[in-house]
Design a protein around this nucleic acid. Structure first.
Lengths: 182, 182
DNA sequence: ATCATCGGTTTGGAAAGCAAACCGTGTTGT
DNA sequence: ACAACACGGTTTGCTTTCCAAACCGATGAT
C-alpha cells in the first residue's frame, strides 16, 4: 500500500515463512508507534471492510467486490497485501475450474477487536440509524474494554503510557526544541 | 475526505448545532454498516494518528505535523473534517498572536477504544518491537473486550449479528442472485 | 530592522484511485 | 457443437488525491 511505500526498509528477517515480515516502527513516518504500524497494514480505505466481509463468511472475490462497493482492482490489490501481511490466506474451494476464496488467519481474526470498536463508535457517533444489531447471549451487545490482567473495566485515566523507543517521549522527538527539556 | 465524496447525500438534519451531521449508512458504497460509516470519518491515512497525538496532549498544529509525519496540508485538511465531524474542537490557547490548538470532544475521546485495539493488534502482529508500553495500575495493560451488559469476556462465536437495514443480510444484497434464497 | 515562531495556504509534479472494458478457463444450456 | 455465463481477476484511460517544498501574515524577540 501507499503508506508502506514511505517506509525505508522492508526488514525481511522472517525466520518462519508462515510469519509475515514485521515492521520496524522506527521506519514509519512520525512517532514510532504500533498504531501507525497497524494502520500501515489495514489503514487504507478498504482493508477493514474486506476483513469485515470475510468475518461474515463472504470470502470470495465477487462477494467482496459487491459487499464492500470497492473497485475490483482495489480489492485485488488489497487482497494481495493482506495475504502478504498475514491477515488473510488464499484457499481453493474447488478445482476445475479453480476457484479461490480468502479466509482469516489468527491475526485476521484478532482484528475483530478493531472492527468491533469501530462498529460501536460508528453506531454511537457516526450514523443516523444503526444498520446492524449485535447480540451476546440474547441481549444487546456493547463492547467494553477491560484490563486482561485484572479484569477491571478501564478508564482512560487509569492507563499510563510510556515511550520506550529511542529519541521520543509522549511529547515528541527528544532532540526537538519543542519546549524546555534537557 | 475522499470517501465522503462518494456519498450521495450529506443528510443535514442536525437539530443541535453542536452535534455533527450523521451519515445515512445507505448512502455509503457497499453494505450499509457502521464500520464503513466510522471509517468514512476517521478511516484515512492520518486521522487516527492525529487523534492519538491529541490524546497524548499534543494538540497544536506544529506538534501534529512533527509527531504524525504527515504533510502540513494533509494535517490542515484532516483537522477541518475532524472538527466538522465532531471529533475535535478548536480552541484558542492565547490571543495576540491568536494561536489555536485542538482538543478531543466526547466522540473523540471514545475513539480511544479504536486506537487501543489498533495498538494492541499492532504490538502483537505488525511490529518487530513494541515502541510504547502501557500500564494499568502498575501492571502491563492488555485490552480485553467484554460485554458491557453482563461483564463477561467475549468470544467471537458468542456474538450474533443481524442486519436490520433494508435489502441486505449477512451475505449481501437480497435481490442478488448470489445463491438460492427467495 | 531583522529574524524567529506559529498556524496555516499555495504550487507543481507524482502517485493512487476509479469505472468500465476486457480476458482465460471452465461449465451449463440448447 | 456452440453460445452464453460464472468466476477471479487484469488492463486501460482518466480523475482525484497526496506529497514536499516554498510561501504568507501576524506577532514577538534581539
Amino acid at each position: 500500500m501507499a503508506r508502506m511505500a514511505r517506509r525505508t526498509e522492508p526488514a525481511a528477517t522472517a525466520t518462519d515463512p508462515h510469519e509475515a515480515a514485521r515492521i520496524d516502527p522506527a521506519t514509519l513516518p512520525g512517532r514510532p508507534c504500533s498504531i501507525a504500524a497497524a494502520l500501515d497494514v489495514v489503514g487504507d480505505r478498504w482493508s477493514l471492510l474486506i476483513v469485515r466481509e470475510v468475518m461474515f463468511g463472504n470470502g470470495r472475490f465477487t462477494q467482496l467486490v459487491r459487499n464492500t462497493g470497492a473497485p475490483r482492482d482495489r480489492i485485488a490489490a488489497r487482497l494481495r497485501t493482506l495475504v502478504d501481511a498475514g491477515v488473510l490466506e488464499r484457499h481453493a474451494y474447488q478445482d476445475s475450474p479453480r476457484r479461490e476464496e480468502y479466509r482469516l488467519t489468527q491475526a485476521g481474526r484478532e482484528l475483530g477487536s478493531v472492527t468491533s470498536a469501530l462498529l460501536a463508535w460508528g453506531d454511537k457517533w457516526a450514523v443516523s440509524t444503526p444498520p446492524m444489531r449485535q447480540t451476546h447471549h440474547d441481549h444487546a451487545f456493547t463492547p467494553s474494554v477491560h484490563c486482561a490482567e485484572c479484569g477491571e473495566p478501564v478508564t482512560r485515566s487509569d492507563i499510563v503510557r510510556e515511550v520506550v523507543a529511542d529519541g521520543w517521549d509522549l511529547r515528541g522527538p527528544l532532540d526537538d526544541a519543542d519546549d524546555a527539556r534537557s
